[in-house]
Design a protein around this nucleic acid. Structure first.
Lengths: 241, 241
DNA sequence: TCAAAAGTGTTCCGAATACACCCATGC
DNA sequence: GCATGGGTGTATTCGGAACACTTTTGA
């Protein structure tokens, strides 16, 4: 029934066009973090299919551009953010995942500080807002599956790569860093041990600044050591807690 | 210049066909292991483009089938193997990666015992054989990049998931397991410590059988505990050595 | 008897764990 | 003063690293 494979596009083989009939899209799980809560950015669809449903930040890829630049375009269009951390994690290709054609989608995720994002619903979105990861609505297409896989990927990657630079302000306290990890991993850590572990890694450098206007002892502020951060990201590291 | 995004395929939006113009292919890095050496299965191209070059085991995906089944089809066609471990690791989408059209390829890897594979060059391949990972030829397309990313992925995954079931005979010695890990990670380990670590994980169960016809003390044979193996694969684990 | 790999035990040390405790600030 | 979160010190335990040693086989 099926024609023989034509991977090499020779003249003898069957028509090239037969195989150039896929659509390619990109869906990005935009993770946000704000005051101890992990969130995801969703957009509400104003058109069919799945009109009225919430969906991940995604769009079709133009045939003349690649995923990386499409990702930036899509995120900028929808969120006004640019130059942010973004990483591919899985490709979803179920034959019937899109009701109107054979569209394969590549899943990305990105990490941002929710409070720095001011949502602007674009032409084809009715609205857009942050959802807490613990109270998500029904999602369009197979976006639930994509989101779950994204969460799973993030949780795994957090354990052997440094994450946080993207989610915290440039100056932060060790308490904030701990809260971030606790939120990401849904797990509580021992404060003294967490500090010891972090400080031993030389990942952060203390500043000579302190919190202000807090009704408790002000915490010392820290910043990520970018050199070391990128080194650890490249090499990987074990973050056992 | 670009038309507005048409992710939702509404009537008002530009033509759907404009976006259904991608080709989708699958390239699999088939890792083999035999007597302490990690290998990769390559096929020699008998047609243009890249005629005469070596390439990964790959093919176009038919519009009516998905990646998982295509992967099985391609691997079976080319190697006669079926039902083997196979996992997606990255999607490659450079605009110019294929000289004859916009073809996006999804990278998979699989792990097999080289000696169980009897290569049969199919219609469009001149030949096919195993290459040691340390002496690879020039590769067609961007397959060098795909292979490198595959190796990188495998090395990383080995560290936090059990791997080996696929690469060792059903009964094996701890020495063989150690050699496997040493080959995969290009690193030597201390024998007593390696054994202690492995045995503590309860990943393998000792059999009441021993090696035969070896000119040294015969080693006890072990088998993977499949239940525990799958559990650890799902949960992940830290394999620090 | 020797080579070769299997297999065991022991010491050392650093790091994870589990605490108790003190400090600085706003109210 | 007291609630709150910041910050430190310590005793214990566990596991990794290093290494010496014994065992069993074929040749």
């Amino acid at each position: 029934m099926k024609k023989p494979s034509t991977y090499f596009f020779t003249e003898e083989s069957s028509s090239l066009n037969e195989f150039l009939s896929f659509g390619l899209s990109l869906d990005c799980v935009v993770f946000g973090y704000h005051e101890g809560e992990v969130q995801v950015l969703l957009v509400e669809r104003s058109v069919e299919p799945y009109k009225g449903s919430w969906a991940l930040v995604g769009d079709l890829v133009h045939p003349e551009s690649d995923l990386a630049s499409s990702a930036n375009r899509i995120l900028e269009n929808l969120t006004g953010l640019s130059g942010i951390f973004m990483e591919q994690f899985h490709t979803f290709d179920a034959v019937d995942r899109h009701p109107l054609g054979r569209v394969v989608t590549v899943g990305y995720y990105s990490l941002v500080q929710s409070k720095h994002y001011h949502p602007v619903a674009s032409a084809w979105a009715k609205s857009t807002r942050w959802f807490s990861i613990s109270e998500l609505p029904e999602l369009a297409f197979d976006h639930k599956e994509i989101l779950d896989k994204g969460i799973q990927t993030l949780k795994r990657r957090v354990r052997y790569r440094p994450v946080g630079f993207e989610l915290l302000p440039s100056k932060f306290t060790l308490g904030q860093l701990q809260s971030l990890y606790e939120a990401l991993l849904s797990e509580k850590f021992d404060k003294p041990n967490f500090r010891k572990k972090i400080l031993r890694m030389d990942l952060v450098t203390p500043l000579n600044e302190y919190q202000e206007n807090v009704s408790h002892r002000p915490a010392k502020l820290y910043a990520f050591d970018e050199r070391r951060y990128n080194l650890l990201r490249k090499e990987g590291f074990a973050f056992e807690l």
